[in-house]
Design a protein around this nucleic acid. Structure first.
Lengths: 233, 233
DNA sequence: CACGATAGTGAACAGACTTGTCCCTTATTT
DNA sequence: AAATAAGGGACAAGTCTGTTCACTATCGTG
């Protein structure tokens, strides 16, 4: 049994979140341990996939034993939801930007979103995005914590811009509000990261033209009926 | 596993393309068998995830033995790439629409894309989208077979529309061309399916306003330098 | 300050499942 | 009929899962 783990001299390794089994001087409990487990969970999720998660792998990564995990959660799914929901490791309520201009707000909001995606919690989202059908509860949590808040804020930003005359009133819709975040997400999936230049490009090449006040060209909206002309073959 | 694996009564009498081990009168070989394996692979991929794929599971789904698979491919990864590449089960070159109008072209192209996503081969894409980092070769194939062709055609559609005066010339860019497909993909991931109404909404609420000829408002493009105004906190 | 309650650590374990390979039988092709 | 390859089962080695246990650091209380 167990060479004692109470090495009295190891003050150096004070507190690194993702330590792969570093012998610790202090034994964590309660909240501190829980948060370390959340971190390890998100890191592992970011590295691999939801299906491969297991208490078996997470425990050593968090520098603890499986028992501590089984005492808290019944399944990896529960653990993931908890990790996502916890404000300190997962997602809290994002704040609305207020730079005074539509372009400033968009770049601030989308830039922050892109930044979050580069953190462990953001990279942990990636494997979850394709799990809608198999793990509705997990996906619903992603939706509730990430997708919907962004959409809500974006809609408010658009409304404010429309009120200032900076944006066309008819672009204040959920569909238009979804464009920015979705383009960021797509860029993230395709390239692995979203740089500042990408954010600017999305804002300047897509969102600004899309929301620009319309000098009433007769074509901008849906042509009433018009057969949809789909000629797929 | 005492229960015989060739249960003569498939549950719910599934049709034969994805038949879960229906006893066959005829023994397939060569191309026919290969294609059946591709189908089973894509079906299973659509149902679960890339990580969970294994010859062990695919073989019975294709109604054959593991030997037939190991004789053809060394790893599930190779098999997936082959299944995606095969024109009869995977993706060939998509055709460019030519309806005469920008809106018609967009709805035709994106509608067809949405349709493909509802097929097995399309649903099989979903788990692959998050595998860029772990399986670059598979993702590269997705890119080559699905993402890039769509982008290429869309760019051509935009160019043609610009030539006709239907679209602003400055919107003929890869970034703008990426918007449609990416919104379709995002809708697909978030809702599980993309209906005709979604396609129309994307075209009419986003793409048409975005590409509308610009009567030269002084603001549509990037403001030269202008600090990016990001005030993320 | 010391004691007892609580909870973390680390390991072991049995059972289930997975993996790649091998081999024998049988259908199909030449 | 001979050659080829499919069908399908069996195998050993390895992996993963959830439990349980002995041990000990930490905390709260008296």
């Amino acid at each position: 049994m167990a060479t004692t783990s109470h090495a009295p001299d190891a003050p150096t390794a004070a507190a690194q979140p993702p330590g792969p089994a570093t012998p610790r001087a202090t034994r964590r409990r309660g909240e501190a341990l829980t948060r370390a487990i959340y971190q390890a969970t998100l890191n592992e999720l970011a590295r691999t996939s939801f299906e491969e998660l297991s208490f078996d792998k997470i425990a050593p990564l968090a520098g603890t034993g499986k028992s501590a995990l089984y005492r808290r959660w019944a399944t990896p799914e529960e653990l993931v939801i908890a990790a996502l929901t916890d404000p300190s490791t997962g997602f809290g309520d994002p704040v609305a930007p207020d730079t005074g201009s539509l372009r400033g707000d968009l770049i601030a909001l989308l830039g922050r979103f892109a930044g979050v995606l580069d953190e462990p919690r953001g990279r942990a989202l990636r494997p979850l995005l394709t799990q809608r059908a198999r793990h509705p509860e997990v996906f619903e949590e992603v939706r509730r914590l990430v997708i919907l808040p962004n959409q809500r804020i974006l809609l408010a930003v658009l409304q404010a811009a429309a009120d200032r005359g900076e944006a066309a009133p008819q672009c204040v819709t959920p569909r238009v509000a979804s464009v920015g975040p979705r383009l960021i997400m797509a860029e993230f999936l395709e390239k692995g990261t979203v740089g500042r230049a990408d954010v600017q490009s999305i804002v300047d090449e897509v969102l600004m033209p899309l929301t620009a006040p319309r000098p009433d060209t007769g074509r901008s909206d849906a042509p009433a009926d018009a057969g949809d002309g789909a000629r797929a073959t």
